[in-house]
Design a protein around this nucleic acid. Structure first.
Lengths: 198, 198, 198, 198
DNA sequence: TATGAATGAGTCTTCATTCAT
DNA sequence: CATGAATGAAGACTCATTCAT
C-alpha cells in the first residue's frame, strides 16, 4: 500500500494523486487507507520515514572521514550508490525531483529532519581539503558539487521518457549515463594544470 | 495576471495552485481569470506559449552551425544564456524542473511542440564532431550533455532556499554557481590526455 | 433580437438558453441584450407580449357568437388557424409545448393574463349548446376539446424531427396532419347515431 | 432518491432542477447524489432506464398481432393503459411532454433506444389493414394516430393545474378525460359512412 | 447606442475524512 | 480488519448582471 502510494505519487505527482486512486491501485477502499494512515499527512510522513529517509542513509552512510584518501574515489562511489538506489527504487528520481527539490513541497518539509547535514558537511570538508592540497580543481564549489552529483544522476532518470523522444535519441541506459556522469564529474574535478589522470 | 499565475505555479507547484489563489494574488476575482483564459487548460496553454516557449528560443536560438569552431565556447555561451534567462525569469527554474522535467506534466505535454529538436540535434552533432577530432572527451555523451548543462544550472536555482538551509552554507549566488558549472563542464569536456587548457 | 431569442428558446429550451447565446446568435454582445431588455425576466415578458400573445389573438379572435351556426365549421376554422399560425411562426409549437403546457413555466405564468378566457368560454358554450341540440356527440367534453384541438396540431409539429425517425415513417407534412386532425375531431364530434355526414 | 429526482424534474423541468434541490428534497447532501449517480448525466441515464423505459414496455407490450381482430378494441385498451401508467406514475405526463417531445431533450436522446419501433410499426400496420377493409376511417393517418392517442391523454394530465384555472372549469378527472378521449378517437376512427356503432 | 471588463451568486463536481456496522 | 454510506469543504466553471467608457 505504501509502495502503491509511492509509485503513484512519483508517476502522477503528489498533488494529482488522490487517496481513492491509491486505494484502487492497491485493491482496497479509501477508508482502508485512512484506517492505516489516519491522514493524508500521515501517509506522506510514512513515505518519507519508511521510503525516502532510508535512501539517504544508503547514499550517505558510507561517507566517512576515511573517504578522504581519494576524493575522486569517494565521488565515484557516491555516484555509484546513487545509481544503485535509483535502480532499486525506480520511483525515487521522479518523486525526489518533483517534490523534494522543487515544490512548496509536501515531502520536502518532512525530509528536512532526515537530510544528511553532518555527512554532507563532511563531504564538503573533504573536498575542500583536497582542493587546498591541489588535488581537486579549486573552481569547483564543494557545496554545489553535492547537488551536482545528485541532479546529474537523477534528472535524466526522472525524465527518461522525455529525453527518449528527441529524434534520433536512444533511451538512456544506466551504463551510458553512469559513464557520462563520472566522466563529467571526474574531469571537472581534475585540477586545470593536471596532466592526464591515471 | 499571467505573471501572477506563472509565479504562483512555480512557487507552489501547478497542482497545488488554485485559480482563486491566482485571482487573489492578481487582485481580481476568479471569475475574471476565467473571463480571460476560459479554462485552467487554456491558462496553462497561455503560460507555455507566452512564457515558456520564448525562453527556449532565447537559449537555443544562437546555437548555429557557426558555433562549431569552438565547442567549449559554445557550451560556455549556452550556460551563460541559461543564467541570463533564469535571472530575468526567476520562476523559470522551479517551474521547469517541477513540471517540465518531472510530472505526468501539464506544462510538459504542451511544451513538446516547442522543444528545440533541431537546435539540440545540431548541438549534439557539433559536440560529436569535436569528439571525433579529439577536442572533447569521448566519454561525454553529447545528448546527455544537453540535459546536464540545463540541470546543473537550474536545479540549484530552483532549490536555493533548500540549499541555503544547510548549516554553515551560504546562499547560492549567480557568480558562484556560474563558476562552478563552467568549471565542471569545461573540465569534464577536456580530453583526458589534455594538458592544462589555455 | 427578439426573434433570435424566441428561436433559440424554442430550439434548446428556455432553461438551456443563455443570454450570451442569444446575443451571439444575434450578432451583438450580451451587454446589449441587457441594454434593451434590462433583464432575463423582462426579455421573457417581451417574448410573451410581442410574440406569444398575438398568436392567441389570431387563433381565438374569430370565435364569436356568430360561429354558433355550425360547430363543425367553427372547429374546422379553428384548426385551420392553428396551422396558419404554426406555419408563420415555426417556433411556436415547440416553445408552447415545452414551457407553456409543461414546466413550472417561465413563459407559462406570464401568459396567464393573455389567455382567452372569454373566447374559450364562448367556444365551450357553443359546443355545449350544440350537444344539447344533438348536433355534437354528448360524450365529448367541451372544455377538454379546446385542449385537444391545440395539442393534436401542435405536438406533431413540435416533434416532427422525432416522429420522422420512426423507421418507414415519412416526415409530417401539413396537409397530411391537417387531414388527420380534422378527420379525428370531426369524426369524434359526430353524434354516435349519426349517419354519414354530408 | 431516483423518485425524488424524477418528481422534481417533472415539476420544475429538467433544466431548472439542480442537484442540490434533488438532494435537499431527498434529505441528503448533493455530494450524496454524486456518490450514487456520479454525474448529472448518469442520473438522467438512470431515470430513463429505470423509470421511463419500463413505462414504454407497459404501454406497448400488449400490442401484438392478435390485437388485429378489432382495432377499436386495441385502441381502447391502449388508451386505458396510458391512463393506468399515468395514474401510477403521476410525474410521467409532465416529464414526457416537456422533454421527450419537445426540447433538444436530455431525456429525449436517451430514450431513443427504448422507443417501441417494432410495436408501433405493428400498430400502424394493423390500423392500415383495418382501413383497407373499410373498418376504420381512411382519412385517419395511422402514424399520426399513435401520437394523437398519447398526446390527447398526456397533455391534459400534464397541465391539469393550468386547465383548472379556466374560470368555471372543473379539475380534470380521469373518468371525464378517459370518456372524452375515447369518444374522440373512437368517433374519429369510425368510417364516415358508418351508422351508429353497436 | 454599444461594449469590454468585472463580479457575485450559484452549480456541478471532487475529495479527504468520518462513522456505524 | 474492512467497508459502504455519508458529508463538509473547496475548486472549477457558468452566467446574469453592472458599469465606466
Amino acid at each position: 500500500m505504501l509502495d502503491t502510494a509511492t509509485r503513484l505519487f512519483s508517476e502522477q505527482g503528489v498533488g494529482f494523486t488522490t487517496i481513492a486512486q491509491i486505494a484502487a491501485a492497491a485493491g482496497v477502499t479509501s477508508a482502508m487507507v485512512h484506517y492505516y494512515f489516519t491522514n493524508r499527512d500521515t501517509l506522506l510522513d510514512a513515505i518519507v520515514d519508511e521510503r525516502l529517509a532510508p535512501t539517504v542513509q544508503f547514499v550517505w552512510g558510507p561517507v566517512t572521514e576515511a573517504s578522504s584518501d581519494d576524493p575522486f574515489e569517494m565521488v565515484d562511489a557516491h555516484i555509484g550508490r546513487l545509481f544503485v538506489i535509483a535502480e532499486q527504487m525506480p520511483w525515487l528520481p521522479s518523486l525526489w525531483m518533483q517534490d523534494n527539490l522543487c515544490e512548496g513541497g509536501l515531502l520536502h518539509k518532512r525530509m528536512e529532519k532526515h537530510l544528511p547535514f553532518e555527512k554532507s558537511a563532511l563531504f564538503i570538508k573533504l573536498i575542500k581539503r583536497a582542493q587546498r592540497k591541489g588535488i581537486v580543481n579549486r573552481k569547483i564549489d564543494a557545496l554545489l558539487l553535492v547537488n551536482s552529483l545528485f541532479t546529474l544522476v537523477m534528472t535524466p532518470l526522472a525524465t527518461s521518457q522525455f529525453a527518449g523522444r528527441f529524434p534520433g535519441a536512444t533511451t538512456v541506459t544506466r551504463p551510458m549515463l553512469e559513464r557520462h556522469v563520472k566522466a563529467l564529474v571526474t574531469g571537472g574535478m581534475r585540477p586545470l594544470d593536471a596532466g592526464p589522470r591515471r
